[in-house]
Write a protein that binds this DNA or RNA. Structure first.
Length: 110
DNA sequence: TTCCTGACTTCGC
DNA sequence: AGCGAAGCCAGGA
Protein backbone atom coordinates (compact mmCIF):
# COMPACT_ATOMS: atom_id res chain seq x y z
CA UNK A 1 0.00 0.00 0.00
CA UNK A 2 1.22 3.43 -0.80
CA UNK A 3 -0.39 6.70 0.04
CA UNK A 4 -3.66 4.87 0.68
CA UNK A 5 -5.67 7.41 -1.21
CA UNK A 6 -9.44 7.46 -1.29
CA UNK A 7 -9.27 5.38 -4.43
CA UNK A 8 -7.17 2.69 -2.76
CA UNK A 9 -9.88 2.33 -0.15
CA UNK A 10 -12.46 1.68 -2.82
CA UNK A 11 -10.31 -0.91 -4.56
CA UNK A 12 -9.72 -2.74 -1.30
CA UNK A 13 -13.38 -2.94 -0.38
CA UNK A 14 -14.63 -3.89 -3.82
CA UNK A 15 -11.98 -6.56 -4.05
CA UNK A 16 -13.30 -8.03 -0.81
CA UNK A 17 -16.83 -8.46 -2.10
CA UNK A 18 -17.63 -12.18 -1.86
CA UNK A 19 -19.09 -14.01 -4.86
CA UNK A 20 -22.84 -14.20 -5.08
CA UNK A 21 -23.15 -10.90 -3.27
CA UNK A 22 -23.44 -7.31 -4.43
CA UNK A 23 -22.91 -3.92 -2.85
CA UNK A 24 -23.73 -0.32 -3.62
CA UNK A 25 -21.68 2.77 -4.36
CA UNK A 26 -23.15 4.52 -1.37
CA UNK A 27 -22.25 1.64 0.93
CA UNK A 28 -18.62 1.80 -0.14
CA UNK A 29 -18.51 5.56 0.01
CA UNK A 30 -20.14 5.56 3.39
CA UNK A 31 -17.75 2.91 4.63
CA UNK A 32 -14.85 5.14 3.70
CA UNK A 33 -16.46 8.17 5.23
CA UNK A 34 -17.62 10.11 2.20
CA UNK A 35 -21.33 9.45 1.91
CA UNK A 36 -21.57 11.81 -1.01
CA UNK A 37 -18.51 10.44 -2.71
CA UNK A 38 -20.52 7.71 -4.42
CA UNK A 39 -19.76 9.24 -7.81
CA UNK A 40 -16.07 8.70 -7.33
CA UNK A 41 -16.65 5.07 -6.46
CA UNK A 42 -18.04 4.51 -9.93
CA UNK A 43 -15.24 6.48 -11.43
CA UNK A 44 -12.73 4.48 -9.40
CA UNK A 45 -14.15 1.25 -10.74
CA UNK A 46 -13.94 2.71 -14.20
CA UNK A 47 -10.18 2.77 -13.78
CA UNK A 48 -10.31 -0.72 -12.35
CA UNK A 49 -12.15 -2.33 -15.25
CA UNK A 50 -9.68 -4.41 -17.21
CA UNK A 51 -7.02 -3.85 -14.59
CA UNK A 52 -7.09 -6.13 -11.58
CA UNK A 53 -9.61 -8.80 -10.73
CA UNK A 54 -11.79 -6.12 -9.31
CA UNK A 55 -15.38 -7.43 -9.31
CA UNK A 56 -16.89 -4.19 -10.48
CA UNK A 57 -19.90 -6.11 -11.73
CA UNK A 58 -20.79 -6.72 -8.11
CA UNK A 59 -21.20 -3.02 -7.52
CA UNK A 60 -24.58 -1.50 -8.31
CA UNK A 61 -26.46 1.64 -7.35
CA UNK A 62 -28.78 2.02 -4.38
CA UNK A 63 -31.64 0.54 -6.36
CA UNK A 64 -29.71 -2.59 -7.23
CA UNK A 65 -29.59 -1.62 -10.88
CA UNK A 66 -26.56 -2.28 -13.06
CA UNK A 67 -25.83 1.34 -13.81
CA UNK A 68 -22.34 0.94 -15.23
CA UNK A 69 -22.93 -2.18 -17.24
CA UNK A 70 -22.29 -0.24 -20.41
CA UNK A 71 -18.72 0.33 -19.32
CA UNK A 72 -17.84 -3.34 -19.29
CA UNK A 73 -17.48 -3.42 -23.03
CA UNK A 74 -20.44 -5.76 -23.22
CA UNK A 75 -23.52 -4.69 -21.22
CA UNK A 76 -24.75 -8.26 -20.96
CA UNK A 77 -21.43 -9.27 -19.48
CA UNK A 78 -22.15 -7.62 -16.15
CA UNK A 79 -25.54 -9.28 -15.74
CA UNK A 80 -24.10 -12.57 -16.99
CA UNK A 81 -21.32 -12.50 -14.41
CA UNK A 82 -23.79 -11.85 -11.62
CA UNK A 83 -26.07 -14.61 -12.80
CA UNK A 84 -23.13 -16.98 -12.96
CA UNK A 85 -22.45 -16.26 -9.32
CA UNK A 86 -26.02 -16.98 -8.38
CA UNK A 87 -27.43 -13.47 -8.45
CA UNK A 88 -30.73 -13.11 -10.26
CA UNK A 89 -30.65 -10.16 -12.60
CA UNK A 90 -33.74 -9.12 -14.56
CA UNK A 91 -33.93 -6.03 -16.73
CA UNK A 92 -30.49 -5.00 -15.46
CA UNK A 93 -31.92 -5.04 -11.97
CA UNK A 94 -30.80 -7.36 -9.18
CA UNK A 95 -33.62 -9.48 -7.80
CA UNK A 96 -33.66 -10.05 -4.06
CA UNK A 97 -31.23 -7.19 -3.92
CA UNK A 98 -31.68 -6.84 -0.19
CA UNK A 99 -30.96 -10.53 0.07
CA UNK A 100 -27.69 -10.51 -1.84
CA UNK A 101 -26.64 -7.13 -0.56
CA UNK A 102 -23.20 -7.20 1.06
CA UNK A 103 -22.43 -4.51 3.58
CA UNK A 104 -18.70 -3.67 3.74
CA UNK A 105 -18.87 -2.18 7.22
CA UNK A 106 -20.74 -5.17 8.52
CA UNK A 107 -18.22 -7.61 7.14
CA UNK A 108 -15.18 -5.51 7.92
CA UNK A 109 -16.22 -5.16 11.51
CA UNK A 110 -16.13 -8.23 13.77
C1' DT B 1 -2.13 25.94 -14.41
C1' DT B 2 -7.40 25.93 -14.28
C1' DC B 3 -11.92 24.07 -15.56
C1' DC B 4 -14.87 20.21 -16.38
C1' DT B 5 -16.51 15.79 -16.18
C1' DG B 6 -17.69 11.27 -14.03
C1' DA B 7 -20.72 3.74 -13.28
C1' DC B 8 -24.24 8.29 -7.42
C1' DT B 9 -26.30 9.90 -3.13
C1' DT B 10 -28.54 13.03 -0.11
C1' DC B 11 -30.62 17.34 1.39
C1' DG B 12 -33.79 21.12 0.43
C1' DC B 13 -37.99 23.27 -1.35
C1' DA C 1 -44.48 13.41 -2.43
C1' DG C 2 -41.78 14.78 -6.35
C1' DC C 3 -38.18 17.49 -8.48
C1' DG C 4 -33.76 20.44 -8.34
C1' DA C 5 -29.35 21.38 -6.84
C1' DA C 6 -25.13 20.47 -4.21
C1' DG C 7 -21.27 17.48 -2.82
C1' DC C 8 -17.41 14.07 -2.96
C1' DC C 9 -11.95 13.13 -5.19
C1' DA C 10 -9.21 12.46 -9.03
C1' DG C 11 -7.78 12.62 -13.79
C1' DG C 12 -7.88 14.55 -18.56
C1' DA C 13 -7.84 18.53 -21.85
Amino acid sequence: MKKSTWLEQVYAIVCLIPPGRVTTYGAIAQCIGTSKGARMVGWALNQAVGRADLPAHRVVNSQGILTGKHHFGNPERMAALLQQEGVDVVNDQVQNFQKVFWDPQKELEP
